[in-house]
Design a protein around this nucleic acid. Structure first.
Length: 631
RNA sequence: GCGGAUGUGGUGAAAUGGCAGACACGCUAGACUUAGGAUCUAGUGCCGUAAGGUGUGGAGGUUCAAGUCCUCUCAUCCGCACCA
């Protein structure tokens, strides 16, 4: 079946290299997953040539096959070569009856095994063909092996059982020779398993004594000098097959013409719209079955032709929707997006989604961005500056999903407690990046907080501007309450801009409320609500906007300035520890000298210092004093 | 196998190398109450009457000081997986 592909492999190198640009903004896990998915590796590619007898057996149709290895240093340990069951030479032999029935059946069953079954046990069969070792010229038998994959490299490998786990397992099973050529730097290899680490070469002619790394480079050079092999980079990333036999996707704009073949649809006819009068039966492609839709004229010769009924993978559309979001609706008919608007809105500052998009969607979107850049539509390399992967919500240890039937309906909480409580509860439970086992026992707590928050707003004095307070005239409790309010503000700024740990911001607001409760200055209460309703408004919008509209005419719902004066303290408390163990506390003036602090600490900790020799005294400003004693 | 993450009270969780457990939930006791699944007050890591000891999966290390840094290790979860 013919399929349509996007040549994402053309961008493999850049997609890999630009992951560096995303470091810091994207979770490391996602970067690593993409790196592994792209799967770049270096090695040697060379051709195994058939010996004369094998060449003749294949009627001269094949003179050999290419193999790729990342371990050219093990080349002298080759004891067989293996082809994928799907390899063209194998297919040729089957088609031309060059294999006996038993061999043929074994190969067929390898091909038909599911990929999981195929991984369970190594199996293979000899083809009665031989190739020539490119350096030693010795004869090497050719096998078919189920662990060789047709869609990576050339679908054929050189096998070195002494230094590769898979080759070893296979060689053991079929009693093939195991020739060690690398030994550990210290001591001898354990020959009951493959030695796959870096080591020192032996039995390798002029390369003896080199370490694996040096040998890899030297042996590749040697192959290139002889003109029998080349340095090669391989990728696991494959081209993106985009054709689907479904209704729900953008039609692929090609036309099949009896005379002209496969022809691209004319630009003027784009976009090709889906028909709306289709019947979805669950069988086959509804577009193919539609009575008229697929009949069209050939864009090249004008004769009757058939439209392609395959549609595109929906990932195609999700790869650029964010650019479309930047386009104003009045231009939608004219073009997909305008460069000017893209320039204004892009890139996406914060992109939020589940980890399940780590590879496909996020890689495809990066790919599209690079293609659009090369076509001149956008001027940046990467679409998403920062990525937040939200944690999954689990229920009874499993991911919540409709198919499992273990979902929790937030409507029940919203109905009983209101939407503000539902939001507060969820945001307070854990940071958003974290996986969370759903447990709604703390909903009551969130509800109580909101109730208290609303009730105590009665302490506010109505005002249209931020209350002015003479900090110096306040009592200790009032000063403390103010300090807590501003600490919550500082934390909120950090959370909204940088950290997204909303749970700690909410905790800060709760602390401020607890401190406010210990005093009754209405100006302090008013200022506190002016600030707190502003920072909590995104979390509990209904309550905050009601309080704000009742008392502040909504004037406070904007960014708030931090006043440094509230953080100035008359005295500070320092912990005193002996040999790092917390013992007591002292209260000193914030500008007390180290000498004064140490003297106070010694006095306070006299009980533990009696008869001891003090070795060292450490003062950590505004935090603690550590006294080190001998013994 | 490779890669990534996580591991802290009864529970959810805090903690720029600087007094572990902030903030909540729960629990215990008390107050108010006809009532309490409302509200308020106090307590709450563990052992101990206390003084004190001990404590962030485990074992080492660096440091005056480690949940945090380093080495090794165990467990759980996630992703990729015979990638030559």
């Amino acid at each position: 079946m013919n399929q349509y592909y996007f040549k994402i492999t053309h961008y493999a190198d850049e997609l890999l290299a630009d992951l560096k640009k995303l470091e810091g903004g994207w979770p490391k896990q996602v970067l690593t997953m993409q790196e592994n998915w792209i799967g770049k590796s270096y090695g040697l590619e060379f051709k195994f040539s058939f010996d004369a007898a094998s060449h003749e057996r294949l009627s001269g149709n094949f003179d050999g096959f290419e193999v790729f290895t990342t371990r050219p240093d093990t080349i002298y340990g080759v004891s067989y070569a293996a082809l994928a069951p799907e390899h063209e030479i194998v297919s040729y032999m089957i088609q031309n009856s060059l294999l006996d029935d038993n061999t043929r059946e074994q190969i067929e069953s390898m091909k038909n095994a599911s990929s999981i079954d195929r991984q369970k046990e190594k199996s293979g069969v000899a083809l009665n063909l031989s190739v020539v070792h490119p350096l030693t010229k010795k004869s090497v038998p050719v096998w078919v092996a189920n662990f060789v994959l047709m869609d990576y490299g050339s679908g054929a490998v050189m096998a070195v059982p002494a230094h590769d786990d898979r080759d070893f397992e296979f060689a053991k099973k079929y009693s093939l020779p195991i020739n060690a050529v690398i030994k550990p730097f210290n001591g001898e290899a354990d020959n009951t398993k493959a030695f796959t680490e870096v080591g020192e070469l032996f039995a390798s002619e002029q390369f003896n004594g080199l370490n694996s790394k040096e040998a890899q480079a030297k042996i590749i050079e040697h192959f290139e000098a002889l003109g029998i092999g080349t340095k090669k980079t391989n990728f696991k990333l494959k081209d993106w097959g985009v054709s689907r036999q479904r209704y729900w996707g953008a039609p692929i704009p090609f036309v099949h013409c009896d005379d002209c073949g496969l022809v691209m649809e004319k630009k003027a006819n784009l976009p090709i719209a889906l028909p709306e009068d289709i019947v979805i039966t669950g069988e086959g492609n509804p577009l193919d079955k539609h009575p008229t839709w697929k009949h069209c004229k050939c864009p090249s010769c004008g004769k009757n032709a058939l439209r392609e009924t395959d549609t595109m993978d929906t990932f195609v559309e999700s790869s650029w929707y964010f650019l479309r979001f930047c386009a104003s609706p009045q231009n939608w008919e004219d073009k997909a997006f305008s460069a000017e608007q893209i320039k204004y809105w892009m890139g996406v500052d914060h992109y939020i989604g589940g980890i399940e998009h780590a590879i496909l969607h996020l890689l495809y979107a990066r790919f599209f961005t690079k293609v659009f850049r090369d076509l001149g539509y956008v001027s940046f390399d990467e679409p998403f500056d920062r990525l937040l992967t939200q944690g999954m919500v689990l229920k009874d240890g499993a991911k919540m999903s409709k198919s499992k039937g273990n979902t929790v309906d937030p409507d029940a909480i919203i109905e009983k407690y209101g939407a503000d409580t539902a939001r507060l509860f969820i945001l307070f439970a854990a940071p958003p990046t974290q996986e969370l086992e759903w447990n709604d026992s703390a909903v009551e707590g969130a509800y109580r907080f909101i109730k208290r928050f609303y009730e105590r707003s009665s302490n506010i004095v109505k005002t249209d501007s931020m209350p002015q307070i003479d900090h110096g005239s306040l009592s200790k409790d009032e000063k403390f309450a103010r300090k807590k309010v501003y600490e919550a503000l500082v934390r909120a700024n950090d959370v909204y801009v940088e950290k997204y740990t909303f749970n700690t911001m909410i905790a800060g607001v709760m602390e401020a409320m607890n401190a406010l409760n210990a005093q009754s200055n209405s100006a302090v209460w008013s200022e506190a609500y002016w600030i707190l309703t502003s920072i909590m408004e995104p979390v509990i919008p209904h309550v905050c906007s009601e309080i704000s509209s009742n008392y502040f005419s909504l004037k406070n719902l904007t960014s708030q300035r931090v006043l440094d004066e509230v953080f100035v303290q008359e005295s500070i408390t320092l912990g005193v520890s002996i040999n790092g163990k917390a013992r007591t506390e002292i209260e000193v003036s914030p500008d007390a000298s180290n000498d004064v602090i140490i003297a106070a600490a010694k006095e306070s900790a006299a009980k533990w210092l009696e008869g001891q020799t003090i070795v060292k005294e450490i003062v950590v400003p505004k935090k603690l004093v550590n006294i080190v004693i001998k013994g």
